[in-house]
């Protein structure tokens, strides 16, 4: 087991928005070329103090995501290292043309952060509840797509990708992620994390569903089933080696994501295994439907993003092995 893992399932020492603030501060203090742009959602990440402290590095463009992406690309051309933030729907579907052409095709290095990903948009309801961002961003060539599962991971990826070429897309909630990793854990693009070993079935999760997979594995153990649990870390590029090795080892896979199963993590895993080693893969995620109003617990029940559902799909996948 990786000693960097200390899953407690409890509230972390610092919430995602807190660690986002301290990490951006650290990045700007270390490198004056680091730029953070926000389109009037600084209040949501509580970055106003950062704005006051670093007026030459932090900018609020007003409500204009499309132009913000373009400005970020121009600043990169002039030697800067831009990070841009808004809610997930406004940094994906709203600005997809700008993201695709101005950033990716034009070979700019820009980190795009989409907060309140998936059901974490809660009371803002369907218009803000973005399940399609993963599918969209996976289709951008050379992109790195990360679904943040823990605040430590958020901090590390912000730092790791500072000079990464092309589009880096981080989707994340602002708070309420359980504690999974020890501070200082290093993450690598395309390298998943094995959080728990087991030989009967593999649970592959991303984002808020990683901790849910760990809960499901614990429930399965009560029934004598040992599940391997993986945090995929980057949905793109996919850790093919780890996915293949897990399929060979356990012969059954369940994926779990807070996004549309069409084009998301479930798609990425099935697409790959169908080619390399056909294996039964059952997908837990949003079943191609729109968002709606609710609190996280309601929405998890409504969309089946629960440990119970993962555990029952794991048993079904095991039964289908033979």
């Amino acid at each position: 087991m990786n000693r960097k893992i200390r899953y407690t399932g409890k509230k972390p020492e610092r919430e995602v928005f807190e660690i986002f603030n301290s990490t951006m501060r650290e990045l700007i203090e270390d490198d004056p070329h680091v730029i953070y742009l926000d389109a009037d959602l600084m209040g949501s990440l509580k970055t106003q103090e950062l704005w006051r402290a670093f007026p030459k590095n932090v900018f609020n463009t007003g409500i204009q995501e499309a132009n913000m992406i373009g400005v970020a690309c121009g600043m990169y051309l002039n030697g800067m290292k831009p990070y841009v933030h808004s809610f997930a729907p406004f940094t994906s579907r709203r600005v997809f043309d700008q993201v695709f052409l101005s950033i990716a095709y034009a070979e700019k290095s820009v980190r795009v952060i989409g907060s309140d990903a998936g059901i974490m948009a809660t009371h803002n309801g369907g218009t803000h509840m973005c399940f399609e961002d993963v599918a969209m961003m996976r289709t951008v060539p050379e992109a790195c797509v990360v679904d943040v599962s823990d605040p430590v991971m958020c901090a590390e990826f912000l730092k790791e990708t500072k000079e990464r070429p092309g589009l880096t897309f981080l989707r994340m909630p602002r708070r309420d992620l359980p504690d999974i990793y020890c501070p200082g854990t290093r993450f690598e693009e395309g390298k998943g994390m094995v959080l728990r070993e087991g030989g009967d079935v593999t649970l592959i999760g991303c984002g808020i569903m990683v901790a849910t997979c760990l809960q499901a594995a614990e429930a399965l153990r009560q029934e004598g089933i040992e599940a391997r649990v993986i945090d995929i870390v980057t949905i793109k590029p996919l850790d093919r080696e780890l996915v293949l090795e897990s399929a060979v080892k356990t012969g059954a896979v369940v994926t779990a994501e807070n996004a549309n199963v069409i084009g998301g993590l479930g798609s990425a895993v099935t697409e790959y295994l169908a080619m390399e080693r056909p294996t039964r893969v059952l997908r837990v995620g949003i079943e191609d439907t729109f968002g709606r109003v609710g609190v996280e617990s309601f929405l998890r029940e409504a969309y089946g993003l629960t440990a119970e559902h993962i555990a029952s799909e794991a048993k079904r996948a095991i039964a289908l092995k033979n």
């Binding site: 803002n124 309801g125 109003v293 309601f298």
Partner: peptide, 15 residues
């Protein structure tokens, strides 16, 4: 409003 199946949201929803 504020319940799970609410048609009423803090952002209007024509649908």
């Amino acid at each position: 409003i504020g319940t799970f199946h609410s048609r009423y949201c803090i952002q209007t929803d024509l649908t």
